[in-house]
Amino acid sequence: MSISAADVKKLRDMTGAGMMDCKKALAEADGDFDQAVEYLRKKGQQVSEKRADREANQGLILSRISDDKKKAVMMEINCETDFVARNEEFQNDAESFLNAAFENDTENTKDLLSIEVDGLTIEKHLEEMVGKIGEKIEINNVVLITTDGTLISYIHPGNQLGVLAEFDGDLTDAEIGKDVAMQVAAMKPLSVTRDGVDSTLVEKELEIAKDQLLNEGKPEHIAEQAAKGKLRRFYEERVLLEQKFVKDNSVSVKDYLEQNGAPLVKSFHRLQLGENA
């Protein structure tokens, strides 16, 4: 099939790979972008995770946590420009929507929009804000967590990234919890443990690792064993408790928690502007 220059450029923007490599990958994949990315990875290309078609949303990530650290809400509200996101009135409105979600134990955006604040539903408030400001404004994500353990909230300066981390027991040192929440913010783990990683993703990573080794000329039986080693490294990079602790690379996150007598992480939620819409 004919591969257009625009498609080649798009794949290059998505992956950072060379133009000719992108053209060949698209030809091999019959124009399918996901398959083309997979082809590049199998050929050993270092593929960037960015996506050219990702919308650069602006807005705020906000959270509220109860005094006993047993309940927390995190919310993403989006607008079109950073100028609006920094506006005090916009921020105050966003805080009032967050409080409504917290006080009503709201688990999703649809339910939040129907809640009344000062005599109007939040949906109506958003419509009025759009009319007044002249930008598209919407609430894209609401996360509610309740626990018998301990919840820690971390909002990165600038309010473009936030994390809620749930610990499986009483966490007496909030700084330890903040360290782990910051780890989630910085290192983007897929899950707390290996069991939480999608099995299809694991199979694909194993296949890609094996094909890379075969393309390097390794025999089949050696490629299979070495691929398992690469999979272990994948887990160390993408599973929270196995990741190297960012403040001390000599220990894993699990080691850090155990050394400090802290409970392990049970779950986490990470919101970044524009990534979870």
Score class of each variant (00 low, 15 high):
Ser2Phe: 15
Lys10His: 00
Arg12Ile: 13
Arg12Gly: 13
Ala17Asp: 04
Met19Gly: 00
Met19Gln: 03
Lys23Glu: 03
Leu26Ala: 11
Leu26Ser: 01
Leu26Thr: 09
Ala27Ile: 12
Ala27Val: 12
Glu28Leu: 05
Gly31Trp: 01
Phe33Tyr: 09
Phe33Gln: 09
Ala36Thr: 02
Val37Gln: 06
Val37Asp: 08
Val37Trp: 03
Glu38His: 13
Arg41Gln: 09
Arg41Pro: 06
Lys43Trp: 09
Gln46Ile: 10
Gln46Ser: 09
Val47Lys: 05
Arg51His: 08
Ala52Trp: 14
Arg54Ala: 07
Gln58Met: 12
Gly59Arg: 07
Leu60Gly: 01
Leu60Arg: 11
Ile61Asp: 08
Leu62Arg: 15
Ile65Phe: 10
Ile65Ala: 02
Lys70Met: 03
Lys70Val: 01
Lys71Leu: 12
Met74Arg: 04
Met75Asn: 10
Glu76Asn: 08
Ile77Val: 13
Asn78His: 11
Thr81Gln: 04
Thr81Tyr: 12
Asn87Ile: 04
Asn92Phe: 03
Asp93Ile: 05
Phe97Leu: 05
Ala101His: 08
Phe102Asn: 08
Glu103Ile: 00
Thr106Gln: 01
Asn108Tyr: 06
Asp111Leu: 01
Gly119Asp: 02
Gly119Asn: 06
Lys124Trp: 06
Val130Thr: 10
Gly131Asn: 11
Ile133Ser: 03
Ile133Pro: 03
Gly134Asn: 06
Gly134Pro: 01
Glu135Val: 08
Glu138His: 14
Asn140Phe: 06
Asn140Val: 06
Asn141Met: 12
Val143Glu: 14
Val143Lys: 14
Val143Cys: 11
Val143Ser: 09
Ile152Arg: 07
Ser153Phe: 09
His156Arg: 09
Pro157Tyr: 15
Gly158Thr: 09
Gly158Arg: 03
Gln160Thr: 15
Val163Asn: 05
Leu164Val: 07
Asp168Lys: 11
Asp168Gly: 04
Asp173Val: 06
Ile176Met: 03
Gly177Ser: 05
Asp179Tyr: 14
Val180Thr: 07
Gln183Ala: 05
Val184Ser: 00
Ala185Pro: 09
Pro189Tyr: 00
Ser191Glu: 00
Thr193Trp: 03
Thr193Leu: 05
Asp195Phe: 00
Gly196Ala: 06
Ser199Gly: 02
Thr200Ile: 14
Glu203Phe: 12
Glu205Asn: 05
Leu206Pro: 09
Ile208Thr: 15
Ile208Asn: 11
Ile208Val: 14
Ile208His: 07
Ile208Gly: 03
Lys210Thr: 13
Asp211His: 10
Leu214Met: 13
Asn215Ala: 08
Asn215His: 15
Gly217Asp: 01
Lys218Tyr: 03
Ala223Lys: 10
Glu224Met: 06
Gln225Ala: 14
Ala226Thr: 12
Ala227Asp: 05
Leu231Lys: 08
Arg232Glu: 15
Phe234Arg: 00
Tyr235Cys: 02
Leu240Trp: 02
Leu240Asn: 08
Leu240Ser: 04
Glu242Arg: 11
Phe245Glu: 05
Phe245Gln: 02
Val246Lys: 11
Lys247Asp: 12
Asn249Ser: 10
Val253His: 05
Val253Gly: 01
Tyr256Ile: 12
Leu257Pro: 05
Gly261Asn: 12
Leu264Glu: 07
Val265Gln: 02
Phe268Tyr: 11
Arg270Lys: 14
Gly274Tyr: 13
Glu275Ser: 15
Asn276Cys: 13
Asn276Val: 10
Ala277Tyr: 14
Ala277Lys: 12
